[in-house]
């Protein structure tokens, strides 16, 4: 009878248990690392139809974001500028450059430039730019150093945790209203706590954590 199960099978239950633990750990670690917006959204950098560079326009030329994204303080939506906004300068600067052919065509015919949208929250999330930028939340908190990017890419996950981390402690992020579009402005850790608390109190900041604030 002793030969029906060879000796090595004594180890089988243990081996199966160890194997299951290993596979389980790998699967958990993998989904924790890969199946969140931190992996799936961050770093998205599509090829744009025109090689427009924020590093040149916002960085080098020092243009304010609101020259182009002019609705950002007034509406939930931050608009992409029309081609006629570009033509304000490019009717003289790089007038015949082939890189701008699409812009000239769009300004002449009214056919929109097919820019690819990068930052996108799901449609069941209600987001609003104006509440944030009028209450001392800078573009840099959610979009990173756009003024250093030749091509825009997403640097923050824009996940629910990301939103809530700030909504729980907004005082760490609030800054003076005239520094909203100054992306290089450094938060001074010494005065930030005091300033943040002051802004939060003075402006009656209520960054809601109710589900219905963002899912309405």
């Amino acid at each position: 009878m002793s030969d029906i199960f060879p000796k090595w099978t004594n180890w089988l239950p243990l081996k199966i248990a160890v194997g299951a633990v290993l596979v389980g750990t790998a699967a958990t670690a993998g989904s924790w690392y890969y199946l969140t917006p931190k992996y799936s959204n961050v770093g998205y950098q599509p090829v744009q139809p025109v090689a427009f560079s924020h590093a040149i326009h916002a960085g080098q030329l020092g243009m304010d974001c609101r020259y182009c994204h002019s609705a950002v303080e007034k509406s939930w939506y931050s608009n992409i500028p029309t081609a006629s906004t570009c033509m304000n300068c490019h009717n003289q600067v790089l007038k015949d450059d082939p890189k701008l052919a699409l812009v000239r065509e769009s300004a002449a015919t009214g056919k929109p430039i097919p820019w690819v949208q990068i930052h996108k929250v799901p449609d069941y999330v209600y987001f609003n730019h104006s509440v944030h930028v009028n209450r001392g939340v800078s573009c840099v908190e959610c979009h990173g150093r756009i003024d250093k990017m030749d091509e825009v890419r997403q640097v923050e996950p824009l996940s629910m945790t990301f939103c809530l981390d700030c909504h729980r402690h907004p005082e760490k992020h609030l800054r003076p209203p005239d520094k909203i579009t100054d992306l290089g402005w450094q938060v001074d850790p010494k005065t930030q706590k005091q300033n943040g608390e002051k802004f939060k109190h003075d402006w009656k900041v209520q960054s809601s954590q109710n589900c219905s604030a963002c899912h309405r």
Binding site: Y33, P37, K38, Y39, S40, N41, V42, G43, Y44, Q45, P46, V47, P122, R153, V155
Partner: peptide
């Protein structure tokens, strides 16, 4: 995480 991607995020 965070490496550049030309493809839109997978939902």
């Amino acid at each position: 995480r965070g490496s550049l991607s030309r493809q839109p995020p997978i939902e």
